[in-house]
Design a protein around this nucleic acid. Structure first.
Lengths: 339, 339
DNA sequence: CTGTTAGCGCATTCAG
DNA sequence: CTGAATGCGCTAACAG
């Protein structure tokens, strides 16, 4: 590992002061083109590479934005990340990714190290285990701006980028009803999470508006684990009659469907699932399944653009910049009316 | 964003020299416990947080290791990453992840920014598009140690952590033969990649050893894309007789299976697939499928431990530390003999 | 065991 | 437009 060339090496070789060299290499307008050319040529010749560590220390910025997601292997999140990366790279930012694995401790840990590493801003979809937001307040106070995505959080004027879960859920449930379903199970998630509350409400409201009674046994709450999915599947089988499932809980739903298959059981003819607008779903599901398509890459792009604007302070009131993205129902194959 | 407290603030408050403060906070053995306690108490009181940027500049280390994978959404890689993260965190290292998306340019870019950001070492599974290793040589010369994983590369004494692809492939093919298959298709990958060459050889050798003729039409090479998988599926259907498929190309295989299903076609009764020891496979595959289980999390742990040892220079000859991990066939459900 | 001194490499004052 | 001087916050020599 040979010694790196610094601006002083260039400075010495050219007998130009190092500050001018620094300015030239940062393309400052206050250096003549002539000397700029000279310096850039010499820099290339000596194989100069800026020491970002020093630069960061000096400016107290890192040109890096932090991303925290529950789990990168979830297709939705890796798509969002792609969107974020594209936008960030174009704007000259690097990106560092952390996964909370739905653990609060781990999320706190991650936020703390991102803070220590002076990322300029944070994009986060909070973990299910998160019970308070002290770590995020701390980041905002000592670090930089935050933008929430996918899982909306109310925290002062911090912006949220997400979908209208109530609306998507309502549409999904209504789709089943319009196809003749009456006994519709809802796979739900942890009710402390706003997103699942909203989805639940969408389901309930759709039933109400169509004069279908709401039955508690048909609302199955579970965590995002595979084991949970199997439990759900068993519960479904124990119910008197089920002609549709509306799931707002991807992981559990996949697992449940697998269980149905493995047992050689017939899966209800029409299922709507929120969130599977990706490869995984088409692998898992039967033809005839309907899904709610939520914009993933787009969500990343929007969240990331917004964060960068906030970092650069080119916008004023962040709260106004929360955004709700549209969703649409995707019918994988023509689903015929029942009954 | 209020001003951060530095070691000098503590120094002043306690009338202890700042270098002693620094030592105390780094838990140096050369400071008495008494003053350590004093300093730590004060630090907590003032809400001190070390400025890692400054520390990094001074030590010219970042306690961070870089990971480059083709794509984080591929289940195999996200599992490897989990393994890496666990090990790294335990050893006090942070981790930054980049995805090359199988693009050479992008990989070069990533290596370059990781180098600029002075990561202490690099774990990489090279992209399929990678045509030379100049960027990696450069990293080794100016950055730090490298450990390859999953996709073996011959580059001086740089260690490789992977599986024995030939052996795994041989076992998989032989498994089909022993179950009565004679007309076995091989889904292969880009033959410039050592891994796919090895797997191809395993397939060929198994056939030879069992006196089954090798037919070129039964060897189907493709890239790792979904469209490719559909092509493969069509080719399979055009062959006179197929009673088994051995795939060493996950992505294409999933896609092909989906195509078979969608068309309502029967999937050959027994299929062996390399690499699907994860959630995805059980979602996609039919009961009766056999897979080669390759250790993913374990691979991450081993690669990461090795890299950290190399960074700390606690081992001498890296070349000797390449490692080949064992694989095993997993039969998802008892597959009955055919014919 | 603790203090003194001196930078790491860069970017930003302030002069001129 | 360019130069001189200063320090970001920390750690590593080298003393004592």
């Amino acid at each position: 590992m040979k010694k790196k060339t610094t601006i002083h090496d260039i400075s010495r070789a050219l007998k130009i002061n190092s500050s001018t060299v620094s300015r030239a290499l940062n393309n400052s307008p206050r250096v003549s083109q002539k000397t700029k050319d000279l310096i850039q040529k010499k820099a290339a010749e000596l194989g100069y590479q800026k020491n970002i560590l020093a630069s960061n220390l000096r400016t107290n910025k890192t040109n890096t934005i932090g991303i925290i997601v529950p789990r990168i292997s979830r297709n939705f999140f890796s798509s969002v990340i792609s969107g974020i990366e594209e936008t960030a790279y174009k704007a000259g930012y690097n990106v560092v990714i952390g996964q909370s694995l739905e653990s609060f401790e781990r999320e706190q840990q991650l936020v703390s190290t991102l803070l220590s590493n002076r990322v300029d801003g944070l994009l986060i979809s909070v973990s299910m285990g998160t019970t308070n937001y002290d770590h995020l307040h701390n980041f905002k106070n000592n670090g930089g701006p935050i933008v929430f995505f996918d899982r909306p959080i109310v925290m002062g004027d911090t912006p949220n980028i997400g979908i209208d879960d109530f609306d998507a859920s309502y549409k999904a449930t209504e789709h089943l009803i319009k196809n003749g379903c009456k006994d519709i199970v809802h796979f739900s998630g942890f009710q402390k999470i706003e997103l699942y509350k909203q989805r639940m409400q969408g389901y309930i409201t759709a039933l109400k508006n169509h004069n279908i009674p709401i039955r508690e046994e048909y609302i199955l709450e579970s965590q995002l684990s595979e084991a949970d999915g199997i439990e759900l599947a068993k519960k479904v089988l124990s119910l008197p009659k089920v002609d549709g499932i509306y799931s707002s809980n991807d992981t559990a739903a996949i697992s449940a469907i697998q269980f149905f298959k493995k047992e050689g059981l017939k899966i209800p003819d029409d299922i709507a699932i929120v969130g599977f607008n990706n490869d995984t779903i088409s692998a898992v599901i039967e033809p005839g399944l309907t899904t709610v398509n939520q914009p993933d890459v787009e969500m990343g792009i929007i969240a990331s653009s917004l964060l960068i604007e906030l970092i650069k302070k080119t916008i004023e009131s962040p709260a106004e910049h929360s955004k709700t993205l549209g969703t649409e129902l995707i019918i994988r194959q023509s689903s015929q009316k029942r009954k």
